[in-house]
């Protein structure tokens, strides 16, 4: 069987690669530090990050209206969209938004790496994501622009540009099935600077 060949090769991997995982499996830490101080330091760091993020990113988003009138709401994870959260009028409330650095464009979307976290704990900086545009996607071509209906192109946001992206949810019919967490459907995109800008006019 063809996969047997791969398994045989895996058995010949360099020892240092295997040793690193052995340590993880055994639960042995590389450097032992008092758990009390680790917990205290972690709490302080989390508090600082939360305060910074709230002031810098979350509050401006909460104050804004999207191009189609949907309110910006921060949720912990994408699952909240899938569970069908809606506001009083029955409109779906989209969940998470991220700062992404575009690495390449593709049909109906782009791939990028997470450059900043806005209102979700689902992804860490550096995670690679595929973004697909929803049918009613809109975007802000520039800092001084109002929202435009339709999908942006590489001319609007060239490779290497960092953008904020608000997601409608996860794609159920994405071509790369099985990677649900790496494929998100975008509702709105704009320059990264708008993530902290005050409320803008909408069409």
């Amino acid at each position: 069987m063809r996969q047997n060949k791969l398994h045989d090769a895996l058995g010949l991997l360099d020892d240092d690669l295997i040793e690193a995982v052995e340590k993880l499996r055994s639960g042995a830490p590389k450097k032992r530090v008092s758990m009390y101080w680790i917990s205290a330091a972690a709490c302080l760091c989390i508090a600082a990050v939360v305060l910074f993020a709230a002031e810098k990113f979350v509050q401006p988003l909460l104050d804004r209206q999207s191009a189609d009138g949907l309110k910006y709401e921060g949720y912990d994870n994408v699952a909240s969209v899938e569970s069908g959260n809606t506001d009083e009028s029955g409109e779906a409330v989209f969940s998470l938004s991220l700062l992404l650095k575009i690495t390449s464009w593709r049909e109906n979307g782009f791939t990028g790496t997470v450059a900043g976290i806005l209102d979700t704990e689902s992804y860490t900086v550096g995670t690679e994501l595929t973004v697909l545009f929803s049918e009613d996607v809109s975007y802000y071509p520039g800092e001084e622009s109002s929202a435009k209906e339709g999908a942006p192109t590489s001319k609007d946001f060239p490779v290497g540009t960092t953008v904020w992206v608000q997601f409608h949810g996860v794609s159920e019919n994405a071509p790369e099935a099985g990677t649900e967490e790496s494929i998100l459907v975008a509702k709105s995109i704009g320059p990264a600077s708008l993530a902290s800008a005050p409320a803008d006019t909408t069409e």
């Binding site: 895996l10 991997l13 690669l17 295997i18 690193a20 995982v21 993880l24 550096g126």
Partner: peptide
């Protein structure tokens, strides 16, 4: 052995998390 060397080079090029995950699951 050649395949192992190539896989090792590949694993060293990816993130530590992805590398450890792959080795944990398939080695």
């Amino acid at each position: 052995q050649l395949l192992a060397d190539a896989i090792g080079d590949f694993l060293r090029s990816i993130s530590e998390d992805a590398r450890n995950l792959f080795i944990g699951r398939y080695y």
